[in-house]
Write a protein that binds this DNA or RNA. Structure first.
Lengths: 215, 215
DNA sequence: GTCTATAAGACGATAGAC
DNA sequence: GTCTATCGTCTTATAGAC
């Protein structure tokens, strides 16, 4: 599509320097791909550096486009963030039903496996890192965290419990998993950072189960 | 305020613009208090906004001094941070021995009480918030976190356990407490954010104990 | 659809007057 | 000991050429 470099009509450049007017400009026809490249770059930077330290210019540079184009597509930095981390929601929506379904005395293991699994998968780990790194310092990101964890997941789990303190129990269980994510994946403290995921599940699932259905 | 304009000795100003040369300069005698005011302001801002979002100028403004004075005292922003959060270390150093002393089957409760107590006390909560908010996005702050939690506290607790997996056990116990701190104090998700601290200790201490000495 | 150019301002840090 | 003034670099965001 579109030969680009030389095929343009008004070829002789008016540019003051006489330098080539443009370099590796993409086809200009398939714009959908550009948007996704921006989102990939955004996800990578937000996950590695958090919201504040990530710049629109840095995202644009990593995506190979101009920073103005990022603003053109998304308007503000905050909208870029929301669009980038949106992909973390789908797996939760997909799996939350299978967490609450099944025997109640194994819900702790199912919940633990789901969360550890999401963090172990590089594709879902990036947006999760972005959310955690950003939720700690940014109100908009904290709202995303609450929507994802509390509203989408915990409420469902608590609904299965049939106890007056169900929500508190679900949240203490979540706290155990959030703390592991913080220490293992975010701050990376040994020996947890290098522990075998299956070993973690084996140790933690009973604790999560205890929070949910214990005495 | 500020007599300024006319009162200076060598009045005819060498300044190009002829504008007033200085404004409301304080006594210049009581310098020790100034340093502490800067640290108080730094602690407040680092805890509320995290490392990146906090500016040296903002700290200076809150302390009622010029930003150059902050650099004069501490050199770099990172050194300001370290000096500001240092006050979080003393209580840990003071209490860590009383955590490991006493019956082993109550070490979980002592550890839980210590951590919840530090977070419930406004004086120690501020530097802890600063460390957590910053450790997530800043390597220097992450190193402070590791030094505080892992090196100063967990190693001692693990030393009491006499098991090959003692360090991993101590860290999973810490993960439970870190997760509670994240959800209750940092991101503030209900109902944990408003739960009674004593209720939290009652629910969590057995879990921490189980991590440390359970099967 | 993609770019250049730039506005408008905050940042960390330094030099030097007093 | 405290300030003013400023350097050089970074930021988000906009206007407009092609």
């Amino acid at each position: 599509m579109n030969g680009v470099t030389a095929s343009d009509g008004p070829a002789a450049s008016p540019n003051g320097t006489g330098a080539p007017r443009r370099r590796g400009r993409p086809p200009a026809g398939e714009s959908a791909g550009t948007r996704d490249r921006i989102l990939d770059a955004a996800r990578e930077q937000f996950s590695a550096r958090g919201y504040e330290k990530t710049s629109v210019r840095g995202i644009a540079k990593a995506a190979g486009v101009d920073s103005a184009l990022v603003h053109h597509y998304f308007g503000t930095k905050e909208r870029v963030f929301e669009a980038a981390v949106e992909v973390a929601f789908q797996p939760v929506l997909d799996q939350r039903d299978s967490v609450v379904e099944g025997p109640l005395d194994e819900v702790g293991e199912r919940m633990t496996r789901m969360i550890i699994g999401l963090w172990e998968n590089p594709v879902t780990r990036a947006p999760l890192l972005a959310i955690v790194r950003s939720a700690v310092n940014n109100d908009a990101a904290a709202a995303v965290f609450r929507r994802l964890v509390a509203t989408q997941l915990l409420r469902r789990v608590a609904g299965q419990l049939d106890r007056p303190d169900a929500e508190l129990r679900a949240e203490l269980a979540a706290a155990q998993l959030v703390g592991i994510a913080m220490i293992r994946y975010v701050i990376r403290v040994e020996p947890l950072a290098s522990a075998d995921p299956e070993d973690i599940v084996r140790r933690v699932a009973p604790v999560v189960q205890g929070h949910l259905t214990g005495p």
